[in-house]
Design a protein around this nucleic acid. Sequence first.
DNA 1: GTTAGCACTCGACGACCGAGAGTGCTAACC
DNA 2: GGTTAGCACTCTCGGTCGTCGAGTGCTAAC
Lengths: 341, 341
Amino acid sequence: MLTERQRLILSAIVDDYIRSAEPVGSRSISKKSGVGYSPATIRNEMADLEELGYLEQPHTSAGRIPSAKGYRYYVDHLLRLGEVDEEDLRTVREFFSRKMTRMEQIIQHAATILANLTNYTSIVLGPEVFSNSLKAFQLVPLNEQMAVAIIVTNTGHVENRTISIPPGFDMNEFEKIVAILNAKLVGVPLHKLQTKLYTEVSEELNRYVNHCEMIIDALAQALEQRTEHRAFTSGTSNMLSQPEFRDVNKVKSILEWLDETPALVRSFSPKQEGIQVRIGSENADEALQNCSLITATYVVDGTTVGTIGLLGPMRMDYAKAITLMDILSKNLSVMLARCYN
Amino acid sequence: MLTERQRLILSAIVDDYIRSAEPVGSRSISKKSGVGYSPATIRNEMADLEELGYLEQPHTSAGRIPSAKGYRYYVDHLLRLGEVDEEDLRTVREFFSRKMTRMEQIIQHAATILANLTNYTSIVLGPEVFSNSLKAFQLVPLNEQMAVAIIVTNTGHVENRTISIPPGFDMNEFEKIVAILNAKLVGVPLHKLQTKLYTEVSEELNRYVNHCEMIIDALAQALEQRTEHRAFTSGTSNMLSQPEFRDVNKVKSILEWLDETPALVRSFSPKQEGIQVRIGSENADEALQNCSLITATYVVDGTTVGTIGLLGPMRMDYAKAITLMDILSKNLSVMLARCYN
DNA sequence: GTTAGCACTCGACGACCGAGAGTGCTAACC
DNA sequence: GGTTAGCACTCTCGGTCGTCGAGTGCTAAC
């Protein structure tokens, strides 16, 4: 358990380091208003804090920097949330008052704004539609061999696949198929569609439509390819502005990680509700050992449909980042609810 | 006009520099098989080539490096195309034999492969659907206030917008609207849809459906937001592997450029058919002065639907890049034709 | 026209040095 | 006993200097 003074000093060091990115010395802490101790006293406390693992020293005779544990303590106990820049708030409001008609567009735009306001890199995953349920089904023939199958989900998401039409198939049967599928499958979660196709629909369909096995197969196969998660990043170049990443090799692995959708998905997957902060080594991924990742989920129609993330150096402005993400994810949920619910 | 020997030397220098990224000296050229001249002779020629603007010298007593003009000459006259690594070819073939059901997925995958094989950064624009024509139109109500309008184009692309339903509107009218719109608008290019909605459809629709003005307005408004070009990049981190970009500041502006879709679109817009190489200052964009951008277009149903680009340092392996892009864009067109035509 | 020889140039690299920032320890102070 | 002034010590950073090597340009010989 830290004493009040230790907390004060730790807090001051983290604040300072977040601002300056340079090791913080005892003198500069001592000079701060609100701290009534001499450098020597501060030094003693700093030595203690280092021993406890909250601080680190790049080398003898440099100041201290917070360790991952230090940041964690800061985030858990010392953070003062809630003060948002008026200007930033205006930007966010302006964004949410705009009219947009595509869900993806809304979310990606939100991510861009997040990246711009924080100067970190934002990542959007989803929308995850696999747990949605079917709202409507449609088949549009393109020509004699090909048709587009369209699926609309309860959250207003539209998914489409190209399927090939068996030769000799009567195009007029399409309407029947669509009608039957809609009658049977609306309301069914997408991840159950495939099995339902074979168990419940197949038989019925066979009764009315000839040669429909191949259509069912094609549909099932198209569903097989569950939409791999889509990832969208914004503000990648912001990473390069961070002084800790002035060395190309340090950023490289991070950019590689950002480039690789599966890796992103893996890191995001334990989708706890709400805001989550992972600091340095709390990230499983090797590439993120020097980074912090803040994630927040957004909700449509009661289900969590996607995750929005913010990646920065460990020395992140947690207060600003967290409040902004909180505002953004809540507004996002509200806006999406207004559009799709 | 260059002499045969000058061409030989220029070619050797470019080849060497592409490989090593270091200024090329007269000695190393002289030692190459196929070059039967002493370093001194080479030096004289190099001095001439520099005077003509094809070579540059980072400083006295360093070797020469090709200038933008030198690369241009190399690409236009000296390039030997057509030799592709067997391994690479296998990767490409394997890719095109795979079965994929989403157009975007196919294209993005192709871009990823391109980036992996070349170690440069690939960019995909499109598919550009604005010049497509309408194949089918569909309206799916989500609830009392919202509906999804779905547009399928002749190239199999599916576009969707959320529109709000005027209060008191009879849901059963939807079918009529859809029928009329399909009857009137199928075959019309997307960019003419908006005007046609008002000129030809509005009247007819009014005759059969009550309160449909607001629906038309909503549709027109949704179409207003022509889908901004979508950009997809892959292999961003490859930029950091290039020795010329070991300095963070040099890459930063490039990454910013890559992050900004409108800038990408601007650079790509003069969409000439086929493969195009823009070297260094031939790129209008400030950020690309030290880069080369190779672009290729792909085609579905006779119209150019999108562009695929490859961004690397000026010191690019043009031969490999161009042949690969050629193969890829042609295969892509064939594959898309098979899927959507 | 081509090439050997040679003086010259310039950047890269390592060694060295002083300045500055910050520490840890000790002893004095309240 | 907690706090603080003083001081020796440590370590990095930036600048200077000299050496090394690669490569050039010029001249003279072939």
